[in-house]
Design a protein around this nucleic acid. Sequence first.
DNA 1: TTAAGTGCAAAAGATTTGCAGATCG
DNA 2: CGATCTGCAAATCTTTTGCACTTAA
Lengths: 227, 227
Amino acid sequence: MQEELIILERYLREENLKLTSQRELILKVFLNTEEHVSAEELYELVKKEDPSVGLATIFRTLKLLYEAGLAREVDFGDKVLRYEHEYGRDHHDHLICTSCGMYIEAMDPEIERLQDELCKQFGFLPTDHRLEIFGLCKKCRPSETKILKRETNMNLALLKPGQHGIIKKIGSVGPLKRRLMDMGILVGEKVTVIKIAPLGDPLEIKVKKYNLSLRKSEAREIAVEVL
Amino acid sequence: MQEELIILERYLREENLKLTSQRELILKVFLNTEEHVSAEELYELVKKEDPSVGLATIFRTLKLLYEAGLAREVDFGDKVLRYEHEYGRDHHDHLICTSCGMYIEAMDPEIERLQDELCKQFGFLPTDHRLEIFGLCKKCRPSETKILKRETNMNLALLKPGQHGIIKKIGSVGPLKRRLMDMGILVGEKVTVIKIAPLGDPLEIKVKKYNLSLRKSEAREIAVEVL
DNA sequence: TTAAGTGCAAAAGATTTGCAGATCG
DNA sequence: CGATCTGCAAATCTTTTGCACTTAA
């Protein structure tokens, strides 16, 4: 933190910008996550420390951290821009599981070197790059099939209160998926529907030791096998 | 086209979906571009052949082509999802110039091989991947500097009718940039402001042999050197 | 003092969705 | 015929922006 703060201060000075309490707080919270945070997620975390901070400031500050060389933008193929630490961290590539959303950070120096060579061939001066490999992780490898994707119509939104199910797939990509994963909702997990609000939305479910509230539209994204 | 249409038909049959005149037309137009088209851009092209087609259908059909294995999704770091041909085309990586937006398609079989090996190490089954290298192309290499980015305040929106300028930078990323590039607006080009509408928006400019109309907000994104 | 920064609410863009009517199989 | 599609407009969702008010330097 100390070091990063100094870098930020230097950058701000150079650009005639100001160090505010919000910027300092956002940097602190950002550095405390080891995740790939989106603005929205960081906003939630920052609010815990200072509820008065606005979402727009998070967006503006993340962009600032990016310009200061403290954050790197990453894209997991959903529509949300995420940020990860840049300073003091090696560059790495991502292997992203399209079934459960899990990712692996990996790096192969040989790949990096070949990339630079490739650029040289075209007189191209690389400043940044990203390599994302989509596929199925070890855990999802055997279970995910096209058939499952297309033929399972049963989803969490169709369960009645009291019914149990096993999560078969967390549908599509998107911020939703990450939100669910952050809540511990993974493929293979057992879920129970606790109750459903009058209009069918939201519904309350239980996974592992947690009780969670989901919007119906979210629940529809989760394919289940009824128990 | 013939082959791709057959693939689409097969896919549709498998999934109990229907082949409509719109889907056939959209596939045809898509295959006729050699670009990385966004839904919006493809929409414009399709409209020329059949103005009744709706944008939503383009989005839906591109997704369909993607699922059928005929299109690949690519992301150039702006917020727009683009599609390129998948069938019968080699996989390739992109070198994207962050100054002028130009891109190079390149491929290094050795990089591909190492990626597969990397995946193997983690028991990961890759289904797709993308490598994007951002940087400066040959042409932009000497001119783009941080100073230019921060200290040039002169932009196209500030020119008066009759004034000339040289384009120094097309600001930020975004769909705007591509739209401008599609119009032939590149760094180094000479522009002349023809006239400005009463409220300063839009303004009419001339680049090369074209007369173009730009919104003021677009013109502001274009840094110029006054002549 | 004053240029920058902030929160808020509204705007902007890209994409998705609900729906009533049209079309494919 | 009946399920799937389509165009349209309205809705979503992320991100940006205008503005009146604060604040750092």
